[in-house]
Amino acid sequence: MILFDYTRAATVADALATGRQPGAAFLAAGTNLVDLMKGGVTNPERIIDITRLPGLSGIEAKPDGSLRIGALARNSDVADDPHVAKTYPMVAEALLAGASAQLRNAATVGGNLMQRTRCQYFTDAVSPCNKRQPGSGCAALGHATRIHAVQGWSEQCIATHPSDFCVPLAALDASVEIEGQGGTRSVKLTEFHLLPGDHPERETVLEPGELITALTLPAEAARFAGNARYLKVRDRTSYAFAVVSAAAAMILDGGKIGQARLAFGGLALKPWRVTEAEASLAGKAPSPEAYAEAARIALDGAKPTGEANAFKIELARRVAVRALTLAAAGTPARLPALPASPFGIV
């Protein structure tokens, strides 16, 4: 870890002013940043500690029915918030399926959005990696592993985004509140992360010095509360990144699906939401055939990046079908002991 300057920001304005300096990085919990600094993957010269910024850790139900979650709210606080658990159960389930209790107690909402890929060629700090060192190439491309992308990748980068939390957020049309020199702006979560294209070094729409201040779940999202699940397939029962995951939710209306939501984790460099698949479910009675059709549409255009991850396409279809089936069966009154696990049958 390089020797950095440490400053503690007292106000958001403070943070924005210092955050614009070259080589600056915002430190919240540090569960990802400190890890990357230890690995020499990222070497910020200036750490701006934003943990004391006032007013950024609240979870607040707004009069318009939306929910505002401060960027510094801890993952565990959000997951355990009774309103979140009741109204956005798949958000809680995804959070509780991520990492470990220790990490969730530290990690923040904003940090979760900003977490970097687990691509081995990115984290080893030496392999050619266009994300780490633009123009150096993509070492993963010749030896893709099970964690690499099958959707939305480019010849420049085949990494995936590791977040669980972002998957239901994408499905529920969450938006990200961003504070910058020019004021506040709001970006839909589905548009917050960028696909690699020709510029994998650009990972989000954040401009240098901009700060995430909150997340908002719209009022509409609450309507899915009764039928919403997050399902995460893993290589061990807990404390593992997703091989493939999905958030599925629906509004049932007189025995028919009024609206459906479907997003995936583990497939791409961003949470992978497919509105066409969602649309295919609207108006249909919940059925295995309808789910299979939605799953088929959702994986349209999927392409493996190597032998080792081709299986994820079929797996993702099955995960989608299962997640939709679970969602249709109704959100359980209490989250299962093994949240989001296929073995987490209530």
Partner: peptide, 20 residues
């Protein structure tokens, strides 16, 4: 191609956790 490890850590070299 390089002989470098892809999972020389405890997050991705899996040993069982309590839930296993």
């Amino acid at each position: 191609r390089t002989g470098r490890f892809l999972n020389d850590n405890l997050a991705e070299y899996h040993v069982p956790v309590n839930a296993d």
